[in-house]
Write a protein that binds this DNA or RNA. Sequence first.
DNA 1: TTTGACCTGTGAGTTGCTCACAGGTTTTAG
DNA 2: CTAAAACCTGTGAGCAACTCACAGGTCAAA
Lengths: 143, 143
Amino acid sequence: MKVKEIAQAAGVNPDTVRFYTREGLLSPARNPDNNYQQYDADDLRRLRFARKARQLGFSLPEIRAILDQADDHHSPCPMVREVFEQRLAEVEREIAELQQLRERMTTALSAWREMPDGTPDGHTICRLIEHWDETAAATCHEE
Amino acid sequence: MKVKEIAQAAGVNPDTVRFYTREGLLSPARNPDNNYQQYDADDLRRLRFARKARQLGFSLPEIRAILDQADDHHSPCPMVREVFEQRLAEVEREIAELQQLRERMTTALSAWREMPDGTPDGHTICRLIEHWDETAAATCHEE
DNA sequence: TTTGACCTGTGAGTTGCTCACAGGTTTTAG
DNA sequence: CTAAAACCTGTGAGCAACTCACAGGTCAAA
């Protein structure tokens, strides 16, 4: 398989395939005639695995670690369980943060309906945002 | 105020102040003696505004647009309302995606409790992840 | 006066791609 | 048979919003 073929088979951008190859997640053979990359079924398996793992929130270094362990005939699954549970906790924290944010946004939006727009006067820039509750917002930071 | 002082007053990293200055959100005067940046109360107001707007999900270009409009004595608030509503919709979409993801993760986790770890055998890399439901996960992509 | 804490600008690193570029190869249409 | 289109190659830059590192200048206190 050439780059475009494996990319289509996995449903990703060919540049992603090239990128993963550069990053060492894929190690295709070479066609000695034209120096093209030659991917096989095992590469496709690895690529699909990597994409699934990405959807689960694994980072590329984590995925590479799992793949490397699999290459060494170690069972990577306990590691997967561990990282997975950490990732689940993170997802739940993100949900909680976003829900807090949403709540404050809808509250602010309904409060704003009664506020005049007001041209900036040198003391306020936009009172809609300046009246946002600072301490409440402080707990909601992106990372 | 010098960089560190305004940074402390707004509760941000001094490098963030420098970065915002480079990006044109802040335009401090200069001390002609030593070429140090000199921030005033208006800069602090702009900085605090920018941070609040960031917490609300505005991008730096958006914030700069608001600030520029305020400088020109236009009322930026209608623009704020508009971008804010877009942002709220986005937050709600993110929440929905993360909730879907969490659900699939907890489902997978409980399914995995009954699965053996299994050393990779050349056909599977880690069955924990390979048995993740592909089509279900396809609807949850990061952007 | 020397140490330490600050200041300056610039450039690189972060993450996971995506795109652009310049040049080589292969396929397809005329 | 040839020319154009579509592919391949590697490398390097761009995204967002910082954060950190570096080398050199400035200033306060001991």
